[in-house]
Write a protein that binds this DNA or RNA. Sequence first.
DNA 1: CTTTTATTTGACATAAATGTCAAACTTTTA
DNA 2: TAAAAGTTTGACATTTATGTCAAATAAAAG
Lengths: 195, 195
Amino acid sequence: MAKARNTEQHIIDTARKIFLVEGRLHATTEDIGKAAGLPRTSVHYYFRTRDVLFKRVFTDALEDLTSKLNSIVESDLPFTTKIGQYVETWLLFSMMYPHLDTFVVTEIINKEYVPVDKSAGARTNDFLKQIQAAMDKGILLKMPPVHFMLNLFSLLRYPSIAAPLYKQLLNVSDKQYQKLLKERKAYVLKALLKR
Amino acid sequence: MAKARNTEQHIIDTARKIFLVEGRLHATTEDIGKAAGLPRTSVHYYFRTRDVLFKRVFTDALEDLTSKLNSIVESDLPFTTKIGQYVETWLLFSMMYPHLDTFVVTEIINKEYVPVDKSAGARTNDFLKQIQAAMDKGILLKMPPVHFMLNLFSLLRYPSIAAPLYKQLLNVSDKQYQKLLKERKAYVLKALLKR
DNA sequence: CTTTTATTTGACATAAATGTCAAACTTTTA
DNA sequence: TAAAAGTTTGACATTTATGTCAAATAAAAG
């Protein structure tokens, strides 16, 4: 039974790598099995359907992310510190799972079930209010908070999503591009904060 | 034969809407046929394979975009005007074809043929030099030009790519979100230009 | 108007992916 | 150590998407 848990976890880990890191959202159970060194049927034994595994991987990742972010947003830190931590957490997560929101977008487009929790709307509004307050204090560039939010997430997410394209365009290796992504915190903040 | 051209064009238009506007990159020939009011086999009659149609739609769109952008980048306009036009063109295009680079990224990930022209690398370098020059003149926030470029494309592209997600999160209609996107020019520039 | 050419469409063949089952095998437990 | 429970895997059935073909129809050319 020890090995069983291992096999199950091993399949999840392999699937996570394929779905979220490599972005191969249409990988088959055959692909996943092969990558895990198992026959396709083992994947079905543990998860019955491809879809169960798929959703498991994504809900796990989303939960991991949102719990970390929520504790930052709900904290009493001064806004400048808070936004710094927020950016840092997102950047780390973006590098770990570059295709997380590609997945969410794809699911919404295809009208599938999306594991976005109910309170997301309320938390978004709360976040927008915090942004407005920071603007009133003169910490942030003045603009409608919605645009600030769009700018923030754009700067955080796009370079990870579009990594394959920019690696090719800039003709840099995987390692060099990862290095670029790590440097981004400073430049993301520079584009957002008042100076 | 007049009708033929019409049918062929009608299929392309329908496919473009499905692939690039709705982002349903895995729509089947059946889906496309149905949306065009035709049996699936008509799609095959005109394009033989799904793949031919798929590539046709994307190379057409990419060519349209790059030709417009190149004429702006290669022009002798002062940098501030140039970047303004560039942003405006991209924003329009992003709204027209929100999923254009999702496609390019997906193709690269799946190691498919990508219709990115050979000179893209050279033009990118030229663009980076122009950015450096503008920074030296004090027009732009100082940072490595690569990061400026990543910031620029992030701000331009992400809100269109992730539209389905933010429409849900902000609880706004399609029309309202389109209005937001149109307003973005000012806020994109605000995040990039020195002030 | 009739022959040639182009278009439309249903029927068929093939391929790819999924999911189920049961037999063989391993591990746990009583 | 024998029975029970859990695991692995190949074989089969089903579903979905693709692509081809040929008969029916429509349009163009002679």
